[in-house]
């Protein structure tokens, strides 16, 4: 029977159950994680494009379009997650 979940500020996620063969394959993305280097202050912010919702419209945002302005880029765990 499904159990009731304890709800916190991160979005609940699931994953495969049993069968450990798949976990070995999962080590590949972890390898790519080693290449991750934390952003350094004083250095260029990596450019990106992302779909967005703004004032009733769906738009495509490109970070470099904001050159010449101060930008605050905020990440958060998920919509409707309380905090």
């Amino acid at each position: 029977m499904p159990e009731e979940m304890k709800i916190g500020c991160a979005r609940p996620t699931g994953g495969p159950v049993g069968d450990n063969i798949k976990t070995e394959q999962k080590e590949k993305p972890i390898e790519s994680k080693k290449e991750e280097i934390m952003i350094k202050v004083g250095q260029k912010a990596p450019d990106f494009t992302a779909p967005a919702y703004q004032k009733g419209k769906f738009i495509n945002v490109k970070l470099s379009d904001y050159l010449g302005k101060w930008v605050v880029l905020c990440f958060y765990p998920g919509d409707f997650t309380f905090v």
Binding site: G42, K44, Y66, W70, V72
Partner: peptide, 14 residues
């Protein structure tokens, strides 16, 4: 995503 917040200047530098 965790709660990351970046201040980026007009030259595109963090």
């Amino acid at each position: 995503e965790t709660r990351g917040r970046f201040i980026i200047d007009p030259d595109g530098n963090v």
